[in-house]
Amino acid sequence: MSGKITVLLLDDEAIVGRRLKPALEKIGCTVEVFEDPRRALARLAEQTFHIVVTDIRMDDIDGLQVLEQVKKTSPATRVIMITGYAMMALAREAMELGAFDFIAKPFTPDDLRAVVARAAESLGLAVTSSTSE
């Protein structure tokens, strides 16, 4: 199956979105980037995504709230949490709430791509190889 994998990426650090959007696009994802969790939630209400990648810790609304919201509206969506160092408790909580996996900062684009690939696979989708060029 080679339908485009839709990904919503939410992190209040602008650079994260700026760098990861092209990185994920390379493996065949369509990526929408958000810095503001409210806007992201609004968008999630409009459309379901295959995969949501969200930072766990943000000022206003945290990643757990986003996770809950997503799980409520589209349980099939795979949610990948980005956590900080030494936030195992939060990460565990996220897993209990139904997150697909978590990835700790600092990570490399490949780290994320690997997790996204697994998530896509679990949905019966496949990513395209990126490291060929």
């Binding site: 650090e13 650079i15 990185a23 900080g84 700790a104 900062k105 600092p106 490399t108 490949d110």
Partner: peptide, 25 residues
Amino acid sequence: TAGVAHELNNPLNNISLTAHMMLED
């Protein structure tokens, strides 16, 4: 220190992602 270590992850992550992507592309 715990807070600082945590906070430090953000710029570190940004640097790491940027450097990796730069290398890649």
